[in-house]
Amino acid sequence: MAVLSFVEIFEGKIKKASVEAAYYGSKVAAQLGTDSVAVVLGAASAEELATLGTVGVKKVLHANDARFNNFDSKAFSKAVGEAVNAAGANVVVLSFNQNGKLLAPRLSVRLKAGYVPGAVELPEFNGATATAKKNVFSGKATAHYQLNTEKKVIAVNPNSLSPVRGTGTAAVEAFATTLTDADFSTVVKGADLIVGEIPLSEAELVVSAGRGLKGPENWGMIEELAKLLGAATACSRAVADVDWRPHHEHVGQTGLTIRPNLYIAVGISGAIQHLAGVNGSKVIVVINTDPEAPFFKAADYGIVGDAFQIVPQLIAEIKKLKAAH
């Protein structure tokens, strides 16, 4: 028996979302009194993989095979399925990130395993049954998913639990899959990464703005505030649709769903479609001239006031705070 976490590498480093998944996997292994094992597909250094020991992983199965350097959902499903057998795993944990959202349902079918898409807490085990919570209806309710199958797949929502690092070192073992070239079906032609910015889906702090800013030329103060905080910038659908801001910044029901520790919304009314993308944020600050803006109902802290006066003051006060600490 074991718990197997699927760990991804990006530019030689373990993805933050995968560290969370491995930590979650170790916690589940502790609940079950079994070992936490990770599987890594593609090139990675043994030193980097050994650091998974700090989040409780005992052993890493490493398929150091260049064909896995790019994500191919069909090939990855087969390879992780083989790792499940090799590890004797009955629980598989992945991040509910871009690749995990596709790989996990494939694994659920492959392993005939019940699946929790986007667990927000550790599961509860009762005999052979596991129950885990996930957000549904765009965060307006929580559902309790029960898995009765022998094998179980859990994809953990990013930013759901903060890994606590210990001192362990994971043993890295070479892992050979049976995949042939015919198992690979997608070819990556290139990537277009937004350089110099924090990826919104991984950001812990986010500064977001909407139509209240009146025009794209006024985003300077939003970017300055974000830079000062080490935050990513985001926007409402309305401003992405009129090209004031790039589409990849759009958060909301049809854009990205994010769960940062802090979400500062400037000049966004907080329509339900926008809230659907951000209501998992731990702390929400709303700055809006309209005291009736629905966003205040979802906010932890609010200022009814003009963004053009509030944001510069906020920048000045945060600078003071940074200087004092």
Binding site: S108, K112, A113, G114, Y115, V116, T131, V136, K140, A141, T142, A143, H144, Y145, Q146, L147, N148, T149, I284, V286, F296, K297, A298, A299, D300, Y301, G302, I303, V304
Partner: peptide, 20 residues
């Protein structure tokens, strides 16, 4: 493979703390 056993709603709406 998977059963939703039950649902829950947020216990209460957040209380926004206003700052002048």
């Amino acid at each position: 493979l998977t059963t939703v056993v039950n649902y829950s709603l947020p216990e209460k709406a957040k209380e926004c703390k206003y700052v002048q």
